[in-house]
């Protein structure tokens, strides 16, 4: 779809996952800075959603199907906000672990999105 953004988002999601996992490992709840990090990653994911929709509107055809692509695109956008929301009311290391899981899941979704888009043009 737009490869540099996909790669940037995968790397940012993994970094967020590692950062929150470190907090969980140190027995710390997720702090404001972690939530700012989640906001940055979510902003990138929103950017990806917009780019994806624009490319579809421009006539591009994902290799494994438009429906599947859109489903993953929406899922990717919602993953980190959902995990962040779940961690908000769990002010312990387990809230941090939940946020970390969100980052890791988003990174995996980027790999799937890359595959689904396929040769439709990077």
């Amino acid at each position: 779809m737009y490869e540099p953004l996909t790669i940037a988002l995968a790397v940012a999601a993994l970094a967020l996952g590692a950062w929150c996992a470190l907090a969980a490992f140190r027995d710390q709840p997720a702090k404001d800075w972690h939530y700012i990090g989640m906001g940055v990653v979510t902003a990138l994911a929103l950017g990806q959603l917009i780019v994806g929709v624009v490319r579809l509107a421009g006539g591009d055809d994902p290799e494994q199907g438009t429906g599947l692509f859109v489903a993953y695109l929406i899922g990717a956008t919602l993953t980190v906000p959902a995990a962040g929301f779940m961690s908000l009311t769990e002010r312990s290391r387990w809230g941090s672990a939940t946020a970390a899981a969100g980052g890791i899941v988003l990174a995996v979704l980027q790999v799937r999105l890359y595959d689904i888009w396929g040769a439709a043009g990077a």
Partner: peptide, 25 residues
């Protein structure tokens, strides 16, 4: 769903949404 259960409930949420949409599709 508190403590370690928060992580579990989040993962089961991801599984439930992912597996259900995949199965329907």
């Amino acid at each position: 769903s508190s403590g370690p259960g928060r992580l579990l409930v989040t993962l089961y949420g991801v599984f439930a949404v992912g597996a259900t949409s995949r199965a329907i599709y």
